[in-house]
Computed example of a mutant assay.
Amino acid sequence: MEKEDLYAVMDLDNECTQGDLKLSYKNLVLKWHPDRFHEEIKKEEAKMKFQSIQRAYSVLSDSNKRLLYDVGAYDSDDDETGMADFINEMVTLMAQTQSTGNESLEEFEELFEELLKDDVNDQFIKTRSSSYSPFSSTSTTSVHSDDLSNDIPNKMNTRDKTMVV
């Protein structure tokens, strides 16, 4: 399914200001509101156009969603799954972070691992508390949260079915 061009829906270009967006939204809503049409066919067309205008405005009027849309990373399905909220939070945090421009890939990797560390620890603790082991139907993998503090990528020793850090 081809995604609609939100700027085209709003009859604007991607350089438009928030003022341009609001004015276009107001004019399009007045023009395409379904209550303005009496014929059923025209009313259905207007309803579809009106909903499209609403979707476009909800993305383009939100600065974080608009930024994601402009770089091609916005997906309307993310709004339904909560992913858009997560991405918006990440964009906000990134905007608050001061970069010197000298960060290495390793430093970013360490930061990312640190951010995920708590989630990984929580997941392993949940797995450990259950009797399910993905490695064997008879044995349980023993993982201690202290073991995870050294390094996220762990290796499996297949001979004795224990985690090796």
Rank of each mutant, 00 (worst) to 15 (best):
K22H: 06
S24C: 05
S24F: 03
Y25N: 09
K26P: 00
K26V: 00
K26A: 01
N27C: 07
L28W: 07
L28R: 02
V29F: 01
V29Y: 01
L30M: 06
L30Y: 06
W32K: 03
D35I: 02
D35G: 10
F37D: 06
E39G: 13
E40F: 01
E40H: 05
E40Y: 04
I41G: 12
K42V: 09
K43M: 14
E44D: 15
E45A: 10
M48L: 12
M48Y: 08
K49T: 12
I53E: 03
I53Y: 04
Q54C: 04
R55S: 08
S58M: 09
L60W: 03
S61P: 05
D62G: 07
S63L: 10
K65M: 15
R66V: 03
R66G: 11
R66A: 11
L68R: 01
L68K: 05
L68V: 04
Y69K: 01
Y69I: 06
V71E: 08
A73M: 09
D77F: 05
D77Q: 10
D79R: 00
D79G: 01
E80N: 08
T81G: 04
M83H: 03
A84Q: 08
D85F: 02
I87S: 13
E89D: 14
M90Y: 11
T92Y: 06
T92W: 00
L93W: 06
Q96Y: 01
S99E: 09
T100Y: 08
G101I: 01
N102Q: 11
S104A: 07
E106C: 02
E109C: 02
L111K: 13
F112I: 13
F112N: 10
E113I: 08
L115K: 13
L116E: 05
K117M: 13
K117R: 14
D119F: 11
V120A: 03
V120G: 00
I125G: 00
I125H: 09
K126D: 14
T127A: 12
R128Y: 15
R128S: 12
R128A: 13
S129D: 15
S129P: 00
S130E: 11
S131I: 09
S133W: 02
P134A: 07
S136G: 03
S137P: 04
S139I: 12
T140L: 08
T141C: 10
H144Y: 11
